[in-house]
Simulated scan of single mutants.
Amino acid sequence: MGSNLDDIDRGVLYLLQQDARNTTAIDMAEELDVSPSTVRNRIDQLEEDDVLAGYHPQINYEHTGFPLLAIFIVTAAPADRAEAVEHLLEIDGVFEIREMLGGNENIHVNVLAKDNCHLSNISDKIHAVDVEIEQTELTKQCRTQPVTFFSDPISSDETESADGT
């Protein structure tokens, strides 16, 4: 489906990104000016097409006893990158890995830690994998927002310049 998303599909995706837990099919139907059954059918189709691949909670990890969020930027040889990622995912505290397209600093490893000692232990385990840690960044704050590609199309009135062209 991917590139065949229409305005209703994009609207459903946008509204789910805003608050999937508390947004009902009825709420979305009113917002999108369609029936609730249309919304439910669209969600079912988006799930079947793997456009909607899951529903994930937003967790305040600081409140769970893991106040440190760090990003390890590492380099793995291109031929060894896939295997390195698998080993990195086995490390307790690693919750997300992003593989970059190429060059150095080609793996970004997101980790959660209880304290500096715990973070140091995770760092030691990352070093034990055949990668080079290029840098480590502590995250002060993480913010997300819905992807605006799925919001209502910008009207032509909003795209006009100040001189009316």
Rank of each mutant, 00 (worst) to 15 (best):
P36D: 09
V85W: 08
P67Q: 03
D152T: 10
T139N: 12
D115N: 13
H87G: 09
E62F: 07
D44I: 09
T64E: 11
Q45D: 07
K114A: 03
A82H: 12
N106M: 02
K125A: 10
V74L: 05
I122L: 10
P67Y: 02
V111Y: 10
E83V: 10
G93M: 04
L69D: 03
A82Y: 09
V74I: 09
I126Y: 09
F150G: 02
S35L: 14
G93Y: 07
I122A: 13
T64W: 05
Y61A: 08
P67G: 06
I91R: 11
A79W: 03
R81T: 14
S37Q: 13
S35K: 12
V147D: 01
D130H: 12
E62G: 15
L119N: 02
D49L: 01
K140M: 11
C142M: 11
S151P: 02
G54A: 10
Q58R: 09
H56N: 11
H127P: 06
V51W: 00
Q45G: 07
H127C: 12
G54R: 04
G65A: 08
K125D: 14
T148Q: 02
K140T: 13
N104D: 14
E96L: 09
A84H: 02
E105Y: 00
I71V: 13
A84W: 01
G103K: 05
T148E: 02
I71S: 09
N41A: 15
Y55E: 13
D44W: 03
P78N: 13
N110T: 09
E62N: 11
D124Q: 08
D50P: 00
L46Q: 11
A84N: 05
V131S: 09
N116T: 14
H63E: 15
N110W: 03
I154E: 10
V74Q: 06
A70V: 07
G54S: 03
H127L: 14
M100A: 06
G65K: 05
V51G: 03
A113E: 05
V129G: 05
I133K: 08
I107M: 09
G103M: 08
L101R: 06
E134C: 08
R98E: 10
V111F: 07
P67L: 05
E48C: 00
